[in-house]
């Protein structure tokens, strides 16, 4: 395996493109300079830090450090899911529901892959565990956020129709069936589309990375296919848990609709 190492100067030359964009924004009065500079600095600082953290964690190769990093990633993903909601769930459910679902689904799928298909030794080897979890988490997070927001907006929009069914003796699962189905479908769509477009429209990032690092394309492709399966598995499980968990929270054991447990929609 061969790969061409980049020097700081190489990267700095790339930054000329950002400067060019900044000048363009200034010239056209787009007022994007400030946000562009901040976003660029954040990206550089965050990634540099992650580089050091990962190097340190790879060197110690302790299950505790791997676990801690995984936990931090899941917490950030939980916040991200909550931040993408128009109507947030009240209380700890706001962050907790998505985070719990991702903890279960992503951890389960990652551990499954590490112990069986990839077979690293030890199985928690951070060089594999952390990037794998990152990819699975990042993609399933999108599906979970979409599924949950479809559910909450559907239930809030169709309140009258849902209660009309409850009044006639429907259970909460019967009355909310269409919203559950549409939420799960919406949550799964991005990954299904990504699979359909893979290779034709988009070259998945991990595969591209491996090819750049000198891995033969057929090997990289095999890896990518496995990753896709893992992501779809984790997304399906995570979306299912989030949507059913969300509906259980937005209704109660007496089959009432509990929209009082939902924050009002955000403005704008």
């Amino acid at each position: 395996m061969t790969y061409i190492s980049l020097s700081v100067t190489d990267v700095a030359i790339g930054a000329i493109l950002i400067v060019a964009n900044g000048l363009l924004s200034f010239g056209l009065g787009l007022k994007l300079e400030r946000t562009l500079v901040i976003a660029t600095l954040r990206m550089v600082v965050q990634l540099t830090l992650v580089g050091y953290v990962l190097t340190a964690v790879f060197n110690v190769a302790s299950p505790w450090w791997t676990g801690t990093i995984a936990l931090v990633m899941i917490i950030f993903a939980g916040y991200e899911v909550a931040a993408r909601q128009d109507r947030r769930l009240k209380g700890v459910w706001s962050y907790g529901l998505g985070a719990t679902a991702m903890t279960f689904s992503s951890t389960l799928v990652t551990v499954l892959a590490l112990t069986t298909q990839i077979g690293t030794d030890p199985w928690y080897d951070p060089q594999y565990a952390i990037p794998l979890l990152g990819m699975i988490l990042g993609n399933s997070m999108t599906g979970i956020a979409l599924g949950l927001s479809t559910l909450t907006s559907g239930v809030a929009r169709d309140r009258v129709a849902i209660e009309a069914q409850l009044c006639l003796g429907a259970t909460r699962w019967q009355a909310c069936g269409p919203m559950i189905r549409s939420a799960i479908r919406t949550g799964m769509m991005p990954m299904i589309n990504a699979m359909a477009a893979a290779g034709l429209v988009s070259l998945p990032g991990m595969m591209t990375g491996q090819i750049l690092a000198g891995v033969p394309p057929t090997e990289a492709v095999r890896y990518q296919i496995l990753i896709m399966f893992l992501i779809v598995g984790a997304t399906g499980l995570g979306v299912l848990m989030t949507v059913f968990g969300g509906l259980a929270y937005l209704t109660d054991s007496r089959h009432r609709l509990r929209l009082d447990r939902l924050h009002p929609a955000r403005m704008g």
Binding site: V160, A161, G169
Partner: peptide, 28 residues
């Protein structure tokens, strides 16, 4: 259970709710 209760104690709200396209789908 609440569904059994509501089948016997039917509440008809002032704003009527409809969950399917046609009238007959709403009839028990």
């Amino acid at each position: 259970s609440a569904p059994v209760w509501r089948k016997n104690v039917a509440y008809v709200p002032a704003d009527t709710g409809w969950w399917a396209d046609h009238v007959d789908s709403h009839m028990p």
